[in-house]
């Protein structure tokens, strides 16, 4: 299968760099799959899980919000945070979820409300992924 260079970057570290066969990510209106030779595309994404197919095997990871840039030369995913399921701190995610829910109950400006919603979504996906499985390499 044809592959394309894929870099997944977060501001804190280079999460993953590989030649991938496919990449699936959560766009705001549903999941989006990129294959080699895709037309130039820019898409923001919401917290969710991304899947990368490398050597015929799918790997899944958590991603926070961010955007991806698809050019002929390759694909770059700019995420605020990215974690493999085995590295997710479940306790921290639970706490973050509780905090976000608490904040959502309070009266807030539209902007703050949006931020809390995003924070809640982040925590939920982290928890989901951490409980689902770990990658067996």
């Amino acid at each position: 299968m044809k592959t394309f260079p894929l870099d997944i970057l977060t501001p804190e570290h280079q999460f993953f760099s590989t030649h991938a066969e496919a990449l699936t990510i959560q766009a705001p209106d549903g999941s989006l799959t990129i294959l080699a030779g895709h037309a130039p595309l820019v898409a923001p994404f919401i917290p969710g899980s991304l899947s990368v197919k490398v050597n015929g095997e799918w790997k899944e990871a958590f991603h926070s919000s961010g955007f991806l840039e698809v050019l002929r030369e390759g694909v770059i995913v700019f995420a605020q945070a990215c974690e493999w399921p085995e590295n997710i701190d479940e306790k921290r995610a639970l706490e973050a979820k509780r905090r976000a829910e608490e904040r959502l109950r309070q009266r807030q400006s539209i902007n703050e409300h949006q931020n809390s919603q995003i924070a809640l979504a982040r925590a939920m996906v982290r928890l989901q992924l951490a409980r689902k499985h770990i990658n067996l390499d």
């Binding site: 766009a27 705001p28 209106d29 989006l32 037309a39 130039p40 595309l41 820019v42 898409a43 923001p44 955007f67 050019l71 002929r72």
Partner: peptide
């Protein structure tokens, strides 16, 4: 420089 126009998902404004 991208050789073709970039596609924005869902729309340029929202993106």
């Amino acid at each position: 420089i991208p050789e073709a126009d970039i596609i924005y998902v869902p729309s340029p404004e929202e993106a």
